[in-house]
């Protein structure tokens, strides 16, 4: 049996309670949302196995994942494992000698016999072929990174969902890139 002292809730009380609850829920959602945007997706280059899924599973038309180059690690080789197909018969720039399916890796003559390799981001699809080639046959100076000028920072990254090596992780927005060897 209910106590007589207990007040019945009026319609006004209900409205006040509802508004308060709404405010609390709204504030909570804002806090959660703010803390979520303080991190961004990034690839740990030490875990990446160059499976090629970054090219096929990003929600964007052209993947937000791009190849980047640690120039200090590069050997500036004439025959580059990241640039040339392993069975290439010539160390030239012919399309049939190149490993990249979109010719996104550009080579520039420095001095005999050294060449500089740079990534044309607008052509790079993040397939990691060059990364795997450089890792297997060179110094391992190429690696993949999520470019934050392109990434839409989905709550559930569609590449992370299929990444076979759990290389995708959230990192603080203040340090959004993981450099090779320092991740």
């Amino acid at each position: 049996m209910m106590s007589d002292k207990k007040k019945k809730l009026t319609r006004r009380d209900m409205l006040r309670l509802g508004l308060s609850a709404g405010a609390v829920v709204g504030l909570g959602a804002t806090v959660v949302s703010k803390s979520a945007t303080k991190t961004v997706w990034q690839i740990d280059p030490d875990k990446c196995v160059q499976c090629g899924k970054c090219a096929t599973d990003c929600v964007l038309e052209l993947s937000a994942v791009k190849c980047v180059h640690a120039y200090a690690v590069c050997g500036y080789c004439e025959l580059c494992g990241g640039y040339h197909r392993p069975d290439a018969t010539k160390t030239d720039t012919a399309a049939e000698s190149q490993l990249c399916p979109t010719s996104a890796l550009e080579r520039t003559f420095i001095e005999d016999p050294y060449y500089q390799y740079s990534v044309k981001e607008e052509l790079c699809i993040g397939c990691a072929k060059c990364v795997k080639g450089c890792d297997a046959f060179g110094n391992g100076s190429l690696f993949l990174q999520v470019r934050h000028d392109r990434c839409v920072n989905c709550n559930e990254c569609s590449i992370a969902r299929v990444c076979p090596s759990d290389a995708f992780k959230r990192v603080p927005i203040e340090e959004p890139y993981l450099l090779k060897g320092k991740a």
């Binding site: 499976c51 090629g52 090219a55 096929t56 795997k132």
Partner: peptide
């Protein structure tokens, strides 16, 4: 044409095991 290739066969997988 706009669909990205998906499924078990990844056209960008680089197989160096053959070597």
């Amino acid at each position: 044409m706009r669909q990205k290739p998906k499924g078990d066969v990844n056209p960008y997988k680089y197989d160096i095991e053959q070597y």
